[in-house]
């Protein structure tokens, strides 16, 4: 220590993860706000649940009639519906989290100026970040529960391991929400959101959601194996089909790292974004 000092110690800027005074411990107020707003637009809220269900019904039944059975993660043949359902669950966790953390956050930030209104109160930047990510998880969690129930109804769950698909969906959503929010902090206009679509749509289509990795030539398999949604799909597919192995922990680790990177970048950038 360099001696007594009258002012409060302040760590150097680069050490701080959060803006000073950025957290008032009231992130749950944002959940309250989002819940109130959703009650008023319940139809939109509800519709988010149906999209993956429509896909499951159409593709599982229709496309499935062209395919028959496919080898599952451990080689045991499974129905086409059982093959794509975990993929759709993973994709819906990604899509919901990305939508909430990019379009919704950007709109509130730049157009509705909602965060400015909140920052005029004791709430800080960290309350806002945690509250918004928290809401994305609440919403994603509810959709995941609904979708898992639908899967159970169609007999597409392979055993008790499937219960872990819910926390897995939350982890996937958390990772995508953190990265999404970090990405949003760099966006300047709606034009930039083309890039979000350009990332999420190919991922949805090509991350072994609709057919196994073996369809691709060798080099492309390596590319696909790097995609985050691929790891989400593999994780879900292992859990819902009951083909559980230690490899699943590798996928979990992927999302833990992704969450950490996203969270660090997002919180660093929030100060720049909100407190000019």
């Amino acid at each position: 220590m360099t001696g007594p000092t009258t002012s409060l110690p302040r760590p150097p800027r680069s050490w701080r993860l959060m803006p000073s005074g950025g957290y008032a411990g009231r992130a749950h107020m944002l959940l309250e706000r989002s819940a109130t707003a959703s009650r008023r637009s319940w139809l939109v809220f509800l519709s988010g649940f149906f999209e993956p269900v429509f896909y499951l019904l159409a593709m599982g039944q229709g496309l499935g009639s062209l395919v028959g059975v496919l080898p599952g993660p451990d080689g045991t043949p499974i129905s086409y519906a059982a093959f794509i359902a975990p993929g759709l669950l993973a994709a819906s966790a990604m899509n919901g989290a990305v939508f909430d953390s990019t379009f919704n956050v950007f709109f509130k930030l730049k157009y509705a100026k909602l965060y400015d209104a909140m920052l005029a109160t004791p709430l800080g930047a960290a309350d806002i970040a945690l509250g918004e990510i928290g809401w994305a998880l609440v919403r994603g969690g509810l959709y995941a529960v609904g979708f898992l129930l639908v899967m159970a109804g169609f007999g597409l769950l392979g055993g008790p391991w499937a219960l872990l698909a819910l926390p897995a969906a939350l982890l996937v959503a958390l990772a995508f929400a953190a990265v999404g929010m970090a990405a949003t902090s760099f966006m300047r206009s709606w034009q930039d959101f083309d890039l979000v679509t350009l990332v999420t749509v190919p991922m949805f289509l090509f991350s072994t959601t609709f057919y196994p990795l073996s369809v691709y030539p060798g080099w492309l398999q390596v590319v696909v194996e790097c995609l985050p949604l691929y790891h989400a799909v593999e994780l879900m597919r292992g859990l819902t089909t009951g083909a559980v192995s230690l490899a699943l922990l590798g996928h979990v680790a992927y999302f833990v790292v992704m969450t950490a990177i996203g969270a660090v970048v997002a919180t660093r950038r929030l100060e720049v974004l909100l407190l000019r």
Partner: peptide
């Protein structure tokens, strides 16, 4: 992208399948 995913990718999966 849909054309690639379904036409080419899924198409490869079902090529030669009687169903």
């Amino acid at each position: 992208l849909f054309l690639l995913a379904f036409g080419v990718g899924f198409g490869a999966l079902v090529r030669g399948s009687g169903q």
